[in-house]
Design a protein around this nucleic acid. Structure first.
Lengths: 136, 136
DNA sequence: ATAAGTGCAAAACATTTGCAATATA
DNA sequence: TATATTGCAAATGTTTTGCACTTAT
């Protein structure tokens, strides 16, 4: 990956912000400082940073919203590759306490554990691919 | 809230699905069964269901994606009202184990605790509003 | 020099809104 | 009957893409 002026500025802006900015917010912050910066460069750069693990995507993994009719306390496993979200229950996780300083300020608090990794399917696909490469 | 044919069908569709569907997916599943159903009704209905707590929004809380430059293990508090996401660290949370049956199938697993509630600001606003109503 | 990266403009996709018609309570 | 809800169409917002140009390596 080449080190361009745009990439440096975008990364610096990210490091200096505590608010988990959106592409648009980063663009607005930088457009005066980086002459001729375009919004799609911000998109492409963030996407590239995420791919190499320099930043994390926090919200809106896919393009669309997704809904869950399961109201019982439960937790989520999310596949990093295919995006599948699997509900699971866990008595152990249900007992995890909310930190006092957060609980003090809030009402109607919900705590959920989110695990991210590769699901069985995608893991198998990956292994298959490796084998395939070996055989060539 | 009135019980309409569309709402009943959308709710049934949600209950019958394990895949945390998007508005579009629900619309595609139902459009043949529910004559003349429109996508914006699905949007409005899901939004209404969420407002009364009948379903949960799992992904894409805001409209845009949001990124996090913090790569150290940390956890998230998210305000249900203003959408602010606050990072926090916790040695206690960092020790939470991944269930064996999930760990067995996956590599490069990440576990994060997500707490949802009202932040200080929004909680104060809420109290102010109540006072205001009282005074009228 | 050669590709990767950029800016622009347009396309594609996701979500919201105004309004007249419809159906629930 | 009164009004919340709907369908339609148009507006708004978000993300992706093709292409010619630029720039880091």
């Amino acid at each position: 990956m080449r080190v361009t002026h745009q990439k440096v500025m975008i990364y610096k802006s990210l490091l200096g912000s505590q608010d988990h900015p959106s592409p648009e917010q980063i663009y607005e912050k930088l457009k005066n400082a980086v002459h001729g910066l375009s919004l799609d460069t911000v998109y492409r750069t963030l996407s590239a940073f995420q791919k190499i693990g320099l930043i994390d995507l926090v919200e809106g993994y896919g393009t669309a919203r997704r809904f869950d009719p399961m109201l019982k306390k439960h937790h989520h496993f999310r596949c990093r590759k295919c995006g599948t979200i699997i509900d699971f229950t866990s008595e152990y996780y249900d007992k995890i306490a909310v930190p006092k300083d957060i609980a003090r300020n809030c009402e109607n608090i919900k705590l959920q554990v989110k695990i991210e990794g590769l699901c069985k399917k995608c893991l198998n696909k990956k292994i298959t691919t490796k084998k395939h490469i070996k055989n060539n």
